[in-house]
């Protein structure tokens, strides 16, 4: 019994080193000075602690604007996606039985198209709808991965809501949409949060669609902004990239540490399907 416990801690410590190590190295490197970043690479810690690259990044690029844009697009896409998917997931659950299974599988199938090959058809579609270079156009493309993913996860949450409660509520005079709004949704709130987080992260990390659909420089997303920093110059801008990485990754991790209980707890519902 004891041995297993020690082994567990050991495994977790090793895994944590692997998981967190690269981040640690990036953080250390981001504080190295202008020339040190490429000359002093063998040692982990900077010889002289410097904020040069952070200043460089924030002064030379519109990094903070990209962050703001990404936050805005990802939030909107999450909200819209959650509305559409929670409606669909609830309905699919209430269909029950074989239909439910088939529909969830159809949803999985929608994942199969490689995004790199969807991009051109989507761009044609969005342009034909007159939505190129607009937020609705981008949101539409984001729905292609948000809706299937969220619906798929939410189906398993709604399944945990006992039908008996809903029936009781309907006898009390609630309409069916009323039951959904006032009974089912509050019951799966933790699941909604967990799913929303997945949706948010997927949108936050998305690159290709935002590159093609949003073309205005000041409206670019963080991913595209990072790409510009990395690929825009004749030399590698290690320092700028390091600083940018830290600024993108650390907030996500703080966010994770706040909600990690939710992620694990929320997903539990997904397990008992």
């Amino acid at each position: 019994m004891k041995k297993g416990l020690i082994a567990s801690y050991l495994i977790l410590i090793i895994a944590s080193i692997f998981a967190a190590g690269p981040l640690l190295i990036v953080i250390c490197a981001s504080f190295k000075g202008q020339y040190e970043i490429v000359s002093n690479t063998a040692s982990l810690l900077p010889k002289v602690f410097s904020l040069y690259w952070y200043r460089d990044l924030l002064e030379k690029t519109d990094f903070l604007i990209y962050v703001r844009n990404s936050l805005c697009y990802s939030l909107l896409s999450t909200i819209l996606g959650m509305v559409i998917s929670s409606l669909a997931a609830y309905a699919i659950t209430r269909l029950g039985g074989k239909k439910q299974k088939q529909l969830t599988r159809v949803i999985v199938m929608t994942y199969m198209f490689p995004p790199i090959l969807l991009a051109i058809p989507y761009f044609i579609l969005v342009s034909n709808l007159g939505l190129a270079n607009s937020l609705p156009g981008l949101l539409l493309a984001y729905m292609s991965f948000t809706v299937p993913f969220c619906t798929y996860l939410l189906v398993s949450y709604f399944r945990t809501v006992p039908v008996e409660i809903e029936d009781a509520a309907r006898i009390d005079g609630l309409t069916r949409p009323g039951v959904f709004l006032h009974i089912a949704l509050p019951l799966v709130a933790p699941g909604l949060v967990a799913t929303g987080i997945f949706a948010f992260i997927n949108a936050w990390n998305e690159f290709l669609y935002s590159l093609l659909i949003i073309s205005s420089g000041s409206r670019q997303t963080v991913s595209v902004g990072l790409y510009s920093i990395k690929g825009g110059m004749e030399t590698l801008q290690w320092g700028d990239m390091m600083a940018a990485s830290v600024l993108v990754v650390i907030p996500s991790i703080l966010f994770f540490s706040l909600i990690q209980k939710r992620i694990a707890g929320g997903l539990t519902a997904g397990a008992d399907r």
């Binding site: 590159l211 205005s216 595209v224 790409y227 510009s228 690929g231």
Partner: peptide
């Protein structure tokens, strides 16, 4: 004005 790196 819209700015893109060469590689994209």
């Amino acid at each position: 004005v819209e700015v893109y790196p060469w590689n994209v």
